[in-house]
């Protein structure tokens, strides 16, 4: 029953995003909505993996030197096997990458990056209360995710996937975010100098 609702929601999402993407696409290519959605999530999956390269966790976040960097997925997620294919065989700072999918925040304890899909927007508060003060990179496409205390929020700008970075919050919880990531993503809260540019 719950799965059916999720699936129908997903279809709705796919359609809305697909239309917006198709309007903004430059140059416009004749692609089906499914392909467009699939492309957006493909990009997001790659971004998730790439975030790991620009973030440094405190040593205490790992059980030992061989412990993998773990990506947690809370509830429903749109990537399917895409992310699994991206991380397969990859190593970052010598560590393997693992994915853990769970429906409860407890089950995601020890994850280094936790992703919350838009379908699970209502669980934002739950997620942030569980990991908001831990050195966990919280990433979501949910609106105002950064305002709520999340670290990285996906946005769509001119039909392209972009992101906001809450550097102040990240620093507070002991995550070191590379300045290069900050130069590519938008700062949250937006600095005045940034606006002037």
């Amino acid at each position: 029953m719950r799965g059916w609702i999720r699936r129908s929601l997903l279809v709705l999402m796919v359609m809305t995003i697909g239309i917006s993407q198709a309007v903004a696409a430059d140059p416009p290519t004749p692609t089906t909505p499914e392909e467009l959605v699939s492309k957006e999530y493909q990009v997001k999956a790659a971004f998730l993996f790439n975030f790991l390269k620009f973030v440094e966790w405190p040593d205490s976040a790992f059980a030992d030197a061989d412990a993998p960097i773990t990506i947690g997925m809370l509830g429903a997620e749109p990537f399917g096997s895409m992310l699994d294919r991206i991380i397969a065989g990859e190593r970052i700072q010598g560590r393997r990458i693992a994915i853990r999918r769970a429906d409860t925040t407890e089950a995601l304890t020890g994850c280094h990056l936790v992703f919350l899909s838009k379908f699970e927007a209502r669980r934002t508060a739950e997620l942030l209360s569980a990991f908001g003060s831990e050195p966990v990179l919280t990433v979501s496409g949910v609106d105002d995710f950064c305002a709520a205390g999340g670290i990285i929020q996906f946005t769509i700008e001119a039909g392209k996937v972009r992101f906001l970075v809450n550097a102040t919050r990240a620093q507070a919880i002991g995550l070191k975010i590379s300045s290069q990531l900050l130069s590519v993503g938008k700062q949250f809260p937006p600095a005045k100098s940034e606006n002037r540019r």
Binding site: K53, F54, R162, S178, Q180, L181, V184
Partner: peptide, 11 residues
Amino acid sequence: HAALSFDDANA
């Protein structure tokens, strides 16, 4: 690195 990783030609 970041610009390429996140496909940000502007950066």
